[in-house]
Design a protein around this nucleic acid. Structure first.
Lengths: 349, 349
DNA sequence: ATGAAAGCGCTAACAT
DNA sequence: ATGTTAGCGCTTTCAT
């Protein structure tokens, strides 16, 4: 192999200077021809454009950012537990933002303070014009305290109670959970267990609250032995662990509400391995309606969260708040409806 | 709500000037105290650090990039068909890069020329120091032609034949596919079908090649009626469509090799709906070993691609190539081994 | 309509 | 060891 790389150092990148020289105008005119085409004569615009084509000029992003005090980039903060819930969200975000010429920087916080500090610094360094937090928790880091004053921030899927500094895009987790459990009750179930999400997350608390609400409304007691807590994250493993608790029980529930689809899927799979069949022996409901829910056997009955729509709306709101056009847009709270998707994993008793 | 947002315009961000003034030194010294701590006395370093703490100073990224001609950002180009294959890859990439102080910009090309052009421009604008293409195809856009000379580029999961301008991180798709089909043959299967990936992708061709190799090596003919092409992407829908072809056949295969796990899962699911059981009536093998393969019923026998490891290695290589330390590191080709993961979806005949 | 020139915040020669 | 200064590439007044 004879190739020797010759990046950066090699051919000096073409600058606005080169274009100006070639077109026989000043750099200011080149800049104008690009940004405000109707403020230059057609002749000069043509000359500039042709010089640009000839040189292959692309404006330097750093110089532009430095001058314009805007990077046209947003930071999307994800938990990074690598579950597939976020795939369509990120997809929708990237679509809207890139269409508007914004870049999407992704950051995985992984529940690590160090990483949160890292990304707080990214924001404070002026590297992004806005932030989308898709983690369920606003980073606790003190460095984050000052951050909302610097750039607009939005929270997705779980809002901070009382925070009017952020736009919030979420669902009514509590009501949605109550609907699911209410559906189980309507199907004749009386002993209903709940596999919670990770300890301390807002969604976990809300969905547990909804579970209690539905039980209470039906005159049913919340039994501690049927609330399977601290199983882990919103993932398969949590479902596996919950299955162990199911098997350990003498008086088993006839239905189980899992706080997320992946938990439900892991649970069902472990039950099968133990010879228990869903929904024949026990009914299972999930939450989210991720891609795999419908393809599973049994197809999972679950609460659909409108992830793509949420992503789109959140992106559009942030775009508006970043642009500052038409006065500064105040943060909003948008609550989208969930939908109970009936499939095969819950049966009538 | 009384909150009115006051971003950017409000409090002017603190600059190196402010720190210098407060510490009673020059800006150069502040810069040094940060970048080369041992080139200043301990006393001044202390003074600077304390001034930084007091002011909450964070160096401006755009200014630094402009001056240093390095953005400490990489672009990760994904196909964006939103399948879960890429989740662990992106996870690994973000982990390595952010640990080294690099930001990860994600771009979904979505097989759209417009988007490829868009991201070519991002590169040419000097917005990133390196690029990772995780799409299986190098963007065809002519704007991309000049790009490899500007920043190092790496290809993941599928290399371009004959391209020594890129680092390539892949697996031997052909051999891996042959191993899978060889396993089916060893299990007694003689009529083996293949569901291909999307038309024109390198992986699709390679895996089909391996399928043929294995058949040929066993003295079996490749029957056109058993090669199910153009089903779509590496997704469930392709599996659904393939199921229709299975049902339409008089002389059905006893085993089916799907070019990806999601295809296999969609296929199995559709078979079930049609009353055909896996592996009782037909065996199915997948490719990738995504998270869902093991949790499915039946658990999917598949070829594991080392996605996380691949991400880590590719990131480390790119880091080295970007740094330019120790001479410019030439592009490499790293080929990682796949692993046949035996589970429940293929049975001995 | 166009040009000249200042300056965004930082780093790195060069000078002391 | 520290300060002075030029300048990265661009946009945007302010003149003309």
């Amino acid at each position: 192999m004879t190739t020797t790389e010759d990046h950066a150092p090699s051919a000096r990148a073409v600058t606005i200077q080169d274009v100006a020289r070639l077109a026989g105008v000043s750099t200011a005119t080149v800049s104008r021809a690009l940004a405000l085409p109707d403020r230059v004569t057609e002749a000069t615009r043509e000359a500039v454009l042709s010089a640009i084509r000839e040189t292959g000029y692309t404006p330097n992003a750093a110089a532009r950012s430095l001058r314009a005090k805007s990077t046209r980039m947003v930071l999307v903060l994800l938990p990074g537990i690598g579950n597939s819930f976020f795939t369509p969200v990120l997809n929708a975000l990237e679509e809207v933002f890139s269409d508007q010429g914004y870049g999407v920087l992704v950051g995985y916080t992984r529940q690590s303070r160090r990483r949160e500090t890292h990304y707080a610094r990214v924001i404070r360094a002026g590297q992004v014009d806005g932030v989308l937090v898709v983690t369920g928790n606003v980073p606790r880091d003190e460095e984050f305290v000052a951050v909302p004053d610097q750039v607009p921030i939005s929270l997705m899927f779980a809002g901070i109670p009382g925070g009017d500094r952020f736009s919030v895009f979420d669902v009514d987790n509590r009501a949605a959970a109550a609907t699911m459990v209410g559906h189980m009750i309507a199907a004749g179930h009386r002993r209903i267990a709940h596999i919670t999400g990770p300890e301390g997350s807002i969604e976990t608390n809300e969905r547990f609250g909804g579970y209690c609400d539905a039980l209470t409304a039906a005159g049913l007691a919340v039994e501690e032995s049927l609330v399977w807590r601290g199983a882990g994250n919103f993932d398969f493993v949590s479902g596996d662990r919950a299955a162990a608790r199911y098997f350990a029980l003498d008086d088993r529930p006839t239905a189980v509400f899992a706080a997320a689809d992946e938990i439900a899927l892991g649970f069902i799979r472990s039950l099968k391995t133990g010879g228990v069949s869903v929904p024949r022996d026990v009914s299972v409901g999930g939450f989210d309606d991720t891609e795999y829910a419908v393809h599973y056997d049994p197809a999972l009955t679950t609460m659909r969260q409108p992830r793509t729509e949420m992503g789109r709306l959140a992106a559009e709101d942030l775009l508006l708040r970043m642009s500052g056009k038409g006065g500064v847009k105040p943060p909003t709270h948008v609550r989208l409806p969930c939908e109970l998707v009936l499939r095969e994993s819950i049966r009538r008793l």
